[in-house]
Design a protein around this nucleic acid. Structure first.
Lengths: 199, 199
DNA sequence: GTGAATCACTACAGTGACTGCACTCAACGG
DNA sequence: CCGTTGAGTGCAGTCACTGTAGTGATTCAC
C-alpha cells in the first residue's frame, strides 16, 4: 500500500513532466500562446494524455493547491486544548504560508502564477475558484470545531477577512517585485493584523 | 447625448433578447446543455452576433453585475460629512443589496444563477471572478476615501469580511430555498453583524 | 512461470466556444 | 442626398476538451 509500484511511478513521472513542460512554456511564451498540444509534445506524450492527468489546461498550473488546504484542515481537526478560534486560525494560515513558501514562493512559481493570472482572465477565474473553495472548506471545518460558540455567518466573516487580507498582502508584495522571504513576511503580518483586530 | 437613437435602441433590444433567451434556455436545460448557437437562434440572430455583445457564454448570465459595483463606488465617492468607514461600507453594501433585490432576487434570477453556478465549474469561476474584481475595486475606493486612517491591508480585511459574510449568508439562504425577501434580510443581517464586530 | 485482468497511454473523430475577415445594409450626420 | 459609421452576417479556422476503441506494459491469481 505504501510504496508506489512501477506503474504508479511512471504515471507520476509523466505527470511531473507535463507540469514542468507547462510551467516552462508558460513562462517563456505566456499562458494562451501555448497550446495543450505543445505541452504534451514537450513532455513526450500524446495530447490526449494531458487530459488524463488534468481536467483543464488551467489545472496544470494549480496542481498542488489541494495539498495546502489539507494542511489547514488538519490543524483545525486536531484542535489543541484551550486553543481559541483566532489562535487556531492563525496556526492554520501559518501552516499554509510555510508550505507555500517551501514549494512555490522560493522557486518563483507563485510569482509566475501571479503574473500569468493577472493577464489571463480564464486562469484568474480558476485560481480564485480554488481559493474560494478552500475558504469554504475552512469555514465548514471551523464551524464544526466551534459549533456552539460561533454561527456560520461569523465564521465566514472571520475567514473572509483572513483570506482577503492575506491575498491582498501577497499580491501587493508580488507586484512590488519583493523576494520570496518578503512575500511570506507580508502574508504573516496580514494574519497577525486580522487576528489582533478580532481578538 | 441623453436619448439613445434608433440604432442604439435596436442594439439594446437584441442584447436583451439574447439575455432572455439564454436565461430561459439555461433554466430549462441547464447551462452546458445549451449551445451559443441555440441561444442565438432563439434570439433570432446569428451566432456571431452573440459574441458582439458578450465576451463569453458565461457573461450573458452576469450581464448586469457591473452596474451594482458602480453604485457602491458612488457611495464611497460621495462621502458624507463625519461618516465613519464602517458606516459608509454599510451604506454601500445596502445600496447593492437593494439593487440586487429589485433586479434579480425578486425575479428569481439570482436563484437560477446560484443553481447553475453550483453545478457548472466554469460558470462558478467567472462569477467568483466578478465578485472578487468588485471587491478589489471597493478596496481601492475605500482606501482613497480614508487614505490616512487605514492601510491597504486593513481595508482588504474589512471588505473581505463583508463580502465573505454576505456571500455566505446569501448562499445559505438561497440553498435553504428562502424567498427573495428572506434572502435580502439575511444579507442585511450579515452586514450588520460585521459592522458591529469591527466598530 | 503463465494466463488473465488492469490501467496508463494512444490514435481518431467529433463537438462547441471563440476569433479574424470580408461583406451588407440600415441608421446617422452634414 | 451622399458619405460615413457601426450592428449584424457568413465562413473558415483554431483550440480546448470528450467518447471510443484500441495496444502494450505491469500486476496479480494460481
Amino acid at each position: 500500500m505504501e510504496n508506489p509500484g512501477l506503474r504508479e511511478r511512471k504515471k507520476q513521472r509523466t505527470r511531473q513532466a507535463l507540469i514542468e513542460a507547462a510551467v516552462r512554456l508558460f513562462g517563456e511564451q505566456g499562458y494562451d500562446h501555448v497550446t495543450v498540444a505543445e505541452i504534451a509534445d514537450a513532455a513526450q506524450v500524446s495530447p490526449r494524455t494531458f487530459f488524463l492527468h488534468f481536467q483543464t489546461k488551467e489545472d496544470v498550473l494549480l496542481a498542488d493547491a489541494d495539498v495546502r488546504v489539507d494542511l489547514a484542515l488538519r490543524v483545525v481537526g486536531e484542535r489543541r486544548a484551550g486553543e481559541t478560534l483566532s489562535e487556531m486560525l492563525v496556526r492554520a494560515m501559518d501552516e499554509m504560508i510555510v508550505n507555500a513558501w517551501d514549494r512555490e514562493l522560493s522557486s518563483g512559481l507563485a510569482a509566475l502564477r501571479a503574473r500569468l493570472a493577472a493577464s489571463t482572465p480564464a486562469l484568474q477565474a480558476r485560481l480564485l475558484q480554488r481559493y474560494l473553495t478552500a475558504q469554504a472548506e475552512l469555514v465548514r471545518a471551523l464551524h464544526r470545531a466551534f459549533p456552539d460558540v460561533l454561527d456560520l455567518a461569523t465564521v465566514s466573516a472571520l475567514v473572509g477577512a483572513m483570506v482577503g487580507a492575506v491575498g491582498a498582502a501577497a499580491l501587493a508584495a508580488l507586484e512590488r517585485g519583493d523576494g520570496p522571504d518578503e512575500v511570506r513576511d507580508a502574508m504573516r503580518r496580514a494574519v497577525a493584523l486580522v487576528a489582533r483586530s478580532v481578538a
